[in-house]
């Protein structure tokens, strides 16, 4: 019975793989000429339209900024879901081992540090010292996204790694407070609210949904893109940082 079943499974896999392979060949391997209309338009008009020299930024925060909003939302929902699951797991673990309240960290707990000679403090020292530089670099990538490769998401991820470094490097001093759940959660929620308000603001100024509300105010043509980059960077950085800290088992 069992053997028959595995054979049946193997046949299923073979047939399916064959079908998918044949089915996909035309899409993967055909070669009609690449459509140039959108590229040519962007090359000619992109900078005037959006004010961003980086055309990728121009598209994803200008022409298609609504996609980017939704993308941020995917991240938000994924993080809310992950944190929810983590709390569920904690309650399961709590039932299993009520006596030992164990938190998983990469560095040793305080009472063991002095006794454990072989374990170095290399990780804590290096990450702690490195984190300000990483944070600074993250903000640079975030704010210069309209001119150079980078942008809110990329910068945000670097900021997130800076935050993780902070959390790894901190024992229990002041920086631990910052990397706790609460502050990050607050920045995240505020950034999300701000993002929605900014995207709505065009409606009230007569520029339409996701219209540029700064068009008549600022001299900087890419002002709106810089603003969106900054907000998205903050949002992404705090969200991913929050999730990683939650996965490391740190508690606020």
């Amino acid at each position: 019975m069992m053997g028959k079943r595995t054979l049946w499974h193997k046949i299923q896999i073979l047939v399916t793989m064959g079908a998918v392979a044949v089915f996909l060949i035309p899409v993967f391997l055909f070669g009609s000429p690449w459509p140039m209309a959108a590229r040519d338009y962007l090359e000619a008009e992109g900078v005037q339209d959006s004010g961003a020299v980086n055309l990728v930024s121009a598209i994803y925060l200008g022409y298609r900024s609504f996609d980017t909003l939704l993308e941020t939302i995917v991240l938000l929902v994924a993080i809310l879901g992950t944190l929810g699951l983590m709390t569920q797991i904690e309650t399961i673990l709590g039932k299993e081992q009520k006596t030992t309240s164990k938190t998983i960290t990469f560095s040793l707990s305080d009472d063991k540090r002095s006794s454990h000679v072989l374990r170095t403090h290399l990780l804590e020292v290096v990450t702690g010292k490195l984190s300000p530089i990483v944070l600074l670099f993250g903000f640079y990538v975030m704010l210069y996204g309209h001119l150079s490769p980078g942008g809110g998401f990329q910068g945000g991820v670097i900021v997130a790694s800076g935050i993780i470094f902070l959390s790894l490097g901190s024992g229990l001093d002041a920086s631990a407070k910052f990397s706790g759940y609460k502050a990050l959660g607050r920045i995240e929620a505020a950034a999300f609210l701000l993002l929605i308000v900014v995207s709505m603001s065009g409606i009230f100024l007569g520029k339409g949904f996701f219209g540029n509300p700064l068009e008549s105010v600022t001299v900087l043509p890419a002002g709106f893109i810089i603003l969106l980059n900054a907000i998205i960077g903050l949002k992404v950085g705090t969200s991913i940082g929050l999730m990683c800290i939650a996965m490391m088992g740190r508690k606020a």
Binding site: K182, G185, R186, A189, A190, F192, L193, I196, S199
Partner: peptide, 21 residues
């Protein structure tokens, strides 16, 4: 026409804000 899209999003942002603050 964006009212059914943006208003729930705004509501969601408010709900998240209330949790954090």
């Amino acid at each position: 026409v964006f009212a059914p899209v943006i208003l729930p999003l705004f509501g969601a942002a408010l709900a998240l804000f209330s949790k954090a603050f």
